[in-house]
């Protein structure tokens, strides 16, 4: 993991549509290049809103967003994508008539590489390219298939920063296991991941975390430390100690065993 900061969010605030409150309130954190950084917090904490603000869907009323040291706060979604940021949507859009091949290939800059990238990305998300390439990104895909195709499309694009907005939402447990592998594969391909999740077991893959609570950052730091704060804040400390950290330790030990 590089020690360079890839994304820096400085004191950003985002107003609600009725302009009565801040959905996100003076948030700051850094994402290191090559890392998996998770944004965790309960429902309604502002996690997805923050992700959309980094992608350019929402614009903050104050604060700045820097990407590779450059201020991107006022850039459009397209301009941010061209600089190397993309987002896998929590509820991916469906398109009448658009093939899986064309959807995944749309972000591949070198048109000579489209087929190779599309096939490779489908294989990474455990979908058979020969079966899926000609299918349409429409209502005939299941929710799980659509989620995997969304991940494949960001993998094929090879951005510098991938924002994964609850990529695991709606997945069954068997699929969740493979998602851990997919996240690690994305990291191996040189992409930095900003992982938005409210599942602690998914957050375990992250190097660093930011805990959001009612639109504010409670703590930034290593995942385990952040989770302790999360459990304390939620009044779940005993449960966390008994279950979560046992699982966390098993997870870490598992990785150590694999590496040795």
């Amino acid at each position: 993991m590089s020690s360079d900061v890839l994304l820096s969010v400085k004191d950003i605030s985002i107003l609600s549509e009725d302009r009565q409150c801040n959905i996100v309130d003076t948030i700051s954190f850094d994402v290191m290049e090559g890392s998996i950084h998770s944004i965790i917090g309960p429902n309604g904490a502002g996690k997805s809103t923050l992700g959309y603000a980094i992608m350019g869907v929402y614009h903050p009323c104050s604060g700045k967003i820097f990407f590779k040291g450059k201020d991107i706060t006022d850039l459009s979604i397209t301009e941010r994508a061209k600089r190397g940021i993309t987002l896998a949507w929590q509820t991916p859009a469906r398109f009448d008539g658009l093939s899986v091949y064309d959807y995944i290939g749309v972000g591949v800059k070198d048109k000579n590489l489209i087929e190779q990238r599309v096939r490779e990305a489908l294989e990474i998300v455990n979908l058979d390219p020969d079966v899926y390439i000609k299918r349409k990104v429409d209502a005939n895909l299941s929710g799980g298939e659509r989620k995997r195709i969304e991940l494949a499309s960001v993998i094929a694009m090879r951005p510098k920063l991938v924002i994964l907005d609850e990529a695991e939402a709606g997945m069954d447990l068997i699929v969740l296991e493979s998602f851990m592998d997919i996240f690690n594969k994305i990291k191996e391909l040189g992409m930095t991941i900003l992982l938005i999740t409210h599942r602690e077991d998914i957050g375990m893959v992250s190097d660093n975390s930011t805990l959001l609570w009612e639109g504010k950052v409670l703590v930034n730091g290593p995942f385990r430390e952040v989770m302790l704060h999360y459990c304390e804040k939620a009044g779940l400390k005993q449960i966390c100690n008994r279950t979560l950290f046992e699982r966390f330790d098993q997870f870490i030990n598992g990785i150590i065993k694999d590496e040795t």
């Binding site: 992608m55 869907v57 459009s76 979604i77 397209t78 994508a81 061209k82 940021i85 993309t86 987002l87 949507w89 509820t91 991916p92 859009a93 398109f95 749309v106 972000g107 800059k109 499309s153 694009m157």
Partner: peptide, 16 residues
């Protein structure tokens, strides 16, 4: 065009 569809494609680098 549906904004979710537009955003999805713009996030891959297409302009509007």
């Amino acid at each position: 065009v549906d904004s979710a569809q537009l955003n999805a494609l713009m996030a891959r680098g297409l302009d509007e």
